[in-house]
Nucleic acid binder design. Structure first.
Lengths: 202, 202
DNA sequence: ACGTCGGTTGACTGACCAGTCAATCGCCAG
DNA sequence: CTGGCGATTGACTGGTCAGTCAACCGACGT
């Protein structure tokens, strides 16, 4: 039975620490924050972080893998549908942008500290990251085979351009290089898919 | 007069340290390398680094600003020419890709440690980075006004998509997510401009 | 009452490293 | 020869933290 007073079992405490870590990493950055900052933010003792995680790195690893696997599943699911590649890319861009809309801090951490920090953490997770590029590349490749997309652009390049464009827009929002109000998220989806897909259409 | 023996004046020593820093940052990353690594790589004493630079940060700042200003000038120069926007974007993409071809280590450091590390150094140089986006955005905006590009895509988004696509391809090369042999650099230029510009053309 | 055991605490340690500084070198001018 | 001065050296210091660990808490079963 759960304790009546706190209503928190072990799994929930772990979650509380992870959620606190997202806020701290987003605010201060992984390298510049201290483990004690995470503990303070979560309202737990320093040592408890090490009860649930082997190291500071493992906290970030966990956050990244949790979310990234959800995204990979989403891409696979979209690719399995019997729709135009253009619609698939729309759905994928939509999923990523919605992820940001739903939890900007988490996406900021994943992009800034893992995806775009390929020297430190990206290196560890390079295979997982590349998997996403490959899945998107496969969507493009099939669309070329079916005649929907032009065939003179390498699917891998197209995937990179597509994903890079999305991530750059998110990064622009994250660091206020790109106004976030104008048009909003749905407008952004349209623009990215419009730009990239029109370039790929036959 | 220059010393006959070493043929190195103060400015050259400074350069030697900067070049060594590029190699060390590219190999180990800014955060994980020690200042002594830079000194060793340059073949000078630890303290000399602090004779020429106020701090470890200043070494990276210098490398970034040197190169970034060259790029901003190049973009301005291209934009001043009386050619189609498509040709301008081709020239800009070409310049960035050639920068990588000419000095992959330096571009790796700038992208990985500054441009894509907006939490740490990017924050300091955000204004400089944003300047590049704005210059590209201006190219697109003028092309829309002249009727060359469609007008239903915000110039700022287009600039982000364009720059993001290039940077992602470079990142792919840097970390071997994208094969570097196939087609080569000129092929890459064509593909990026083809993909983005065809999406922007009326 | 009492023992057990997972969860929880936070002071402490050991390692690391940016930046300092006093000493030394070697070129040149007088 | 000598004094000055910028360039160069590298041992040392001070502060920072990740990770450890021994002690403590409190729920629950017996």
């Amino acid at each position: 039975m759960a304790t009546a007073r706190s209503a928190q079992n072990a799994a929930e405490k772990r979650r509380i620490i992870l959620d606190a870590a997202v806020r701290v990493f987003a605010r201060q950055g992984f390298h510049t924050c201290r483990v004690s900052d995470i503990a303070d933010e979560a309202g737990v003792a320093y040592g408890l972080v090490y009860h649930y995680f082997r190291s500071k790195d493992e906290v970030l690893d966990t956050l990244f893998l949790e979310r990234w696997n959800v995204m990979l599943d989403a891409i696979r699911e979209v690719d399995g549908q019997d729709i135009l590649a253009r619609k698939k890319l729309e759905a994928i861009a939509g999923f990523i942008i919605d992820s940001y809309r739903h939890d900007p801090d988490l996406m900021k951490v994943i992009i800034v500290e893992v995806t775009r920090a390929a020297n430190s953490f990206g290196q560890t997770h390079l295979a997982k990251i590349t998997e996403a590029y490959n899945l998107i590349g496969a969507v493009v490749e099939k669309a070329q085979a079916s005649g929907e997309f032009r065939t003179d652009i390498s699917p891998q390049f197209a995937a990179m351009a597509f994903y890079g464009a999305i991530e750059q827009v998110l990064t622009g929002w994250i660091f206020d290089s790109l106004p976030q109000s104008a048009g909003g998220f749905d407008e952004a989806k349209r623009l990215i898919v419009e730009t990239i897909c029109s370039g790929l259409d036959r």
